[in-house]
Design a protein around this nucleic acid. Structure first.
Lengths: 151, 151
DNA sequence: TCTAAATAGTACCATTTAGGTACGCTTTAG
DNA sequence: CTAAAGCGTACCTAAATGGTACTATTTAGA
């Protein structure tokens, strides 16, 4: 089915909530609890994923009373590709195309190089969508992202 | 890590082997055993995935002695998207974007529509690569696939 | 200085799913 | 009639996923 993990899915939702808060008021630091409520997710789940996002420096964390999280950059400058990578590691459709030397068949496998090219295409697609885009529920306009694929 | 299953990965390898045989000699029906040997995979694994590919009518199967499998179409007319769909069902990065009504948060989830658009972009990328392309190990030329993403 | 609110870190458990295996049935060329 | 080959089903193991719990640490404010 070609999917991302639920955690990654939830991460995009939480990031979208953060982005919405970010554009509405300035200095909007939201606690994990608050974010969980707004995203309608469990608190432990939200904390877990926020930790990972903080490590990847996509959000800033503040400890102590009145602490919480805030986007590290503007929504326009955070892409879905970054969120996916933060949650799941390097984008790669197959084991071998993400990490070399993991597959016994690597020496005599003709398709590996082509998978790497497909990965690049998909990474480009993901990089072309920003958090700000995710906020816009009704589609406004369409842009054409040039996507280079070998053929 | 955004991956397809190993079975799907193997399916592309086996399909590539079939495509190679297809272009080299005519009426090339290969047995599952033969394919397993050429792809360096286990026979049961190969049979399993060939069955699925046959159901999706990407390969034709022939029973009985001297039976085996053959591509249902020319390699140029079979895309990676079709193989992925045959093996994993409808392409969807998140549960909700592939099948509606599976997620409790659907009513108040703003990102769903956008994930559907991302899916379409990725499906387009996968549809843009044919089996014939996978045969070409050294990249010849680059084409630009127009990829429509909302922004 | 103490307390409560918050994140950080770690470890653990349960469920699902992927991947592999086995076995018996059916078809068909020779 | 037989052997080679695909077809179908069921089962089993192992690993990844996602959820939970507990503890430590930080910090604003009374």
């Amino acid at each position: 089915m070609l999917r991302v993990s639920k955690l990654t899915d939830y991460a995009t939702v939480v990031m979208t909530v953060l982005a919405a808060a970010d554009s509405s008021q300035s200095d909007s630091v939201l606690s994990a609890q608050d974010l969980a409520a707004r995203a309608r997710l469990e608190l432990p789940t939200v904390s877990k994923l926020l930790k990972q996002l903080a490590h990847a420096q996509l959000v800033e964390s503040f400890r102590g009373v009145n602490g919480g999280y805030r986007l590290a950059r503007t929504p326009e400058r955070i892409s879905i590709a970054e969120i996916v990578t933060a949650m799941e590691g390097p984008i790669g459709m197959t084991e071998c195309s993400a990490h070399a030397g993991m597959c016994d068949h690597e020496p005599h496998c003709g398709v590996r190089v082509n998978w790497q090219r497909i990965n690049q295409a998909i990474a480009a697609a993901l990089a072309g969508v920003s958090l700000a885009d995710m906020l816009k529920t009704p589609p406004r306009r369409n842009v054409t992202i040039p996507l280079r694929v070998a053929s």
